[in-house]
Design a protein around this nucleic acid. Structure first.
Lengths: 333, 333
DNA sequence: TGAATTTTTGCAACCGATTGCAAAATTTTG
DNA sequence: CAAAATTTTGCAATCGGTTGCAAAAATTCA
């Protein structure tokens, strides 16, 4: 690898001069800059970001911690995340929490690489993370996180409680009586909040939920299994699912029993993933503004790097119903 | 951040001693090791991988270059890739080629971070990559690449030509006569190779292809549009699609025209993505062993880091038909 | 026990950049 | 044109580790 020194020698200038031509906003005359650039080109010089990081104490690396590598909505997350960072001159260091035996381990690893910031894209946040990084002065953004000022991290996401309420209202408005909820994994705070909002609104409207249960994970098969069990036990008129993928599994389970959608049973999904628009499902669902959440997270983490002791922020985006064909229409009123 | 020096001071040993307790296979007595570990714990010391990288000229960073952040099969790629690297003590640096104005730019960036190796997961390889990295002595693995010994990079993938032949044989065996191909983007070498194999085998079997066309990209909507156009122009009995996603779009287009699958028209997909097994599609498809390809790529790239001038290798895995319900059964013979 | 051998330790140079400071060069001003 | 003000430049210390080498310590052997 060609180094600074060699370029300096070739250009007949000092090492500082070379360094300065490659650092934003440093003072070099046009003449030396040209000399240096010429020499650098001839030698194929590329400044070492490793060495620079050591000297500046900035790596331009942002950690992305995720634990859901099976749900297609995460593709969009990865796409927007990498794009957003690239555009700002930062780089993503990906951490797959799903299998790492120990979240502690990835934590260490991120600290060892001296990442400038971290975005956690999981509804559940490993509890030791916030402290560990705050102590080290590394900004942490919890995307899709729970609204909770006390946690000490920045949160960018949605108001899950409100979404639950919206779902309940939507189903009741359409005249459904026997309404069930099929949530994501029960341990996820997003599930709990959605459930709370759902039940509360149902209560306000004087409707008793017919059933509440939870899928094992955010997958088609988990949705399908849970729905199969549900159908074996009872009849319901409409179902609010914690995730589109779960919902599609549930729909296929219902169809498998010969039920027609939306005549015999209605479905309301969550996320509005790409596939929700496919005509085999054409799912009515609650749109989660993933794009806004990720772009905002990226923007925030980059801002934090420049201005480390900014006070905590919570950014919430609103969700909206996307009408397709898995719920019966609103009665003419 | 706590540094080596502080730990050394506290433990009452030299900096080398501390360094050695944290490097694999270095010689330290148990006594000093314990002293050092104690001091390190008390201070919360984490060795800086940045500094280490500078000194050792090894970053333990592997670049993953991808350009398809919309196709769910890539989730599996990301999952296996990150897992595989993590298990071996390496870290993924993700590059999203889809939007980076200039592939050259990402190339520079990867070199600036001094990645130890690169896996390119695209069917089309930016032509300047191999040379640039070979010159720098960085191993490059082209996953899903074209068999082509001359390119100077390692290739791990499948024999696309053979897959095309397999597809043709499968369709003819089932008695289809009017057979069409709906490929992925025409510029992809994988598409070209599959097409070549397909046509060649069809020729051998004395069947004239009814139509050959290409989807704009690897997406549901592209498949749907291409199929809509095709149906407006002609009738076909069976279709070989270059990707499951494209195939699902095509199926929905056909169903939209009132066609029954597989009675009126048969579909053969490619990849065997998760969704192919969903009952709304239940797609008969050619399984691409993505897991094998990625695991093998990771293993290979890590091996290359330890042994830089290993000769070029091509690793090919075989594909197989997964029978579901979108093709009519083999005639009893 | 003492010499021979092996293991552990510390010194100091090095990896490839950045940056504060003062000197040198250039530009502005009167 | 000289003095003052400004810009550019190079020196040398620094970032946080690693590692070859020789000295010191511990172990083995006769």
């Amino acid at each position: 690898m060609v180094t600074l020194k060699e370029v300096a020698a070739r250009a007949g200038v000092s090492r500082s001069a070379v360094s300065r031509t490659f650092t934003e906003g440093a003072s070099v005359s046009d003449k030396t800059r040209r000399k240096v650039e010429l020499a650098a080109d001839e030698l194929g010089y590329q400044p070492s970001l490793i060495a620079r990081s050591l000297a500046t104490n900035r790596t331009k690396l942002i950690g992305l911690v995720a634990n859901n590598f099976r749900n297609p909505v995460f593709l969009e997350v990865f796409d927007l995340f990498t794009q957003g960072l690239q555009k700002r001159g930062f780089r993503p260091l990906l951490v797959n929490l799903s299998t790492e035996t120990d979240p502690e381990k990835s934590l260490h690893m991120l600290r060892q690489y001296r990442v400038d910031g971290i975005i956690i894209a999981t509804s559940t946040l490993p509890p030791t993370f916030p402290d560990a990084f705050r102590k080290a002065g590394v900004p942490v953004i919890h995307a899709f996180g729970k609204i909770d000022a006390s946690s000490g991290v920045h949160v960018v996401g949605i108001d899950n409680r409100k979404c639950g309420e919206m779902a309940a209202q939507t189903l009741v408005d359409r005249g459904y009586k026997k309404i069930a909820l099929l949530g994501g994994p029960q341990s996820a705070t997003s599930t709990q909040d959605r459930l709370a909002g759902f039940l509360s609104q149902l209560g306000k409207l004087g409707v008793e939920p017919a059933d509440v249960r939870f899928a094992r994970d955010y997958s088609y098969s988990a949705g399908r299994e849970a729905m199969t069990e549900l159908l074996a036990e009872m009849e319901v008129e409409a179902l609010f699912c914690g995730d589109d993928l779960i919902c599609m599994g549930a729909m296929d389970a219902a169809r498998g029993k010969g039920l027609k959608i939306p005549e015999d049973i209605g479905f309301l999904g969550f996320n509005d993933m790409n596939m929700a628009g496919w005509s085999a499902y054409d799912l009515t669902t609650i749109h989660q503004p993933i794009r806004d959440i990720i772009l905002s997270s990226v923007e925030l983490v980059v801002a934090m790097v420049g201005e480390p002791d900014r006070s905590n922020e919570t950014r919430l985006f609103s969700c909206s119903i996307v009408e397709r064909s898995t719920l019966r229409p609103l009665p003419a009123s």
